[in-house]
Amino acid sequence: MTDAALIERIDTLTSMVGRLTDTVLQLTRTQGARLSRKQVCERLDVCSKTLTAMVRRKDFPEPATDGQWLLAEVVEWEAGRR
């Protein structure tokens, strides 16, 4: 496989991932699902104190007034890290 063909395949896959991420974001926004602190920590593989520090530093979205995070905001944050 030539370098050009490999780059074209990578670009195609990147585009597909982008569209899939957009679809997932749309679905999560529509459903309004929420995650508890425990669920967010498990998803990010961090402890509760680390999550608190991330929120304080504005490195992660704040929870809603009920103390839970909107799944859409978590997915969007994850997508921005890629």
Score class of each variant (00 low, 15 high):
Gln68Glu: 10
Glu42Ala: 04
Cys41Thr: 03
Glu78Tyr: 03
Arg81Asp: 01
Arg57Met: 11
Thr50Phe: 08
Asp22Trp: 00
Lys58His: 14
Cys41Lys: 02
Arg43Cys: 04
Val17Lys: 15
Ala5Gly: 06
Gln31Trp: 12
Ala79Ser: 10
Val46Ser: 04
Asp59Ala: 10
Leu70Met: 06
Val17Asp: 13
Arg34Phe: 03
Met1Thr: 03
Ala4Lys: 07
Ala72Val: 02
Thr12His: 12
Val24Met: 12
Leu25Pro: 06
Asp66His: 05
Ile7His: 12
Glu76His: 06
Ile7Gly: 01
Gln68Cys: 07
Gly32Val: 01
Thr28Arg: 13
Leu71Pro: 00
Gly18Ala: 15
Pro61Arg: 07
Leu6His: 11
Ile10Val: 15
Glu62Pro: 00
Val55Ser: 02
Asp66Asn: 09
Ala53Lys: 14
Thr30Tyr: 11
Leu25Val: 11
Gln39Thr: 07
Val24Ser: 11
Thr2Cys: 03
Gln68Tyr: 04
Gly67Ala: 04
Gln39Ala: 08
Met16Thr: 14
Val40Gln: 05
Leu25Ala: 11
Val40Thr: 08
Thr50Asn: 08
Ser48Leu: 02
Ser15Val: 05
Arg29Ile: 00
Val17Gly: 09
Gly32Leu: 04
Leu35His: 09
Arg81Thr: 07
Thr30Ala: 12
Gly32Thr: 07
Glu62Gly: 02
Leu71Glu: 06
Leu35Lys: 09
Glu8Pro: 06
Val55His: 02
Pro61Ile: 08
Ala4Ile: 06
Gly18Asp: 15
Leu20Gly: 14
Met54Ala: 10
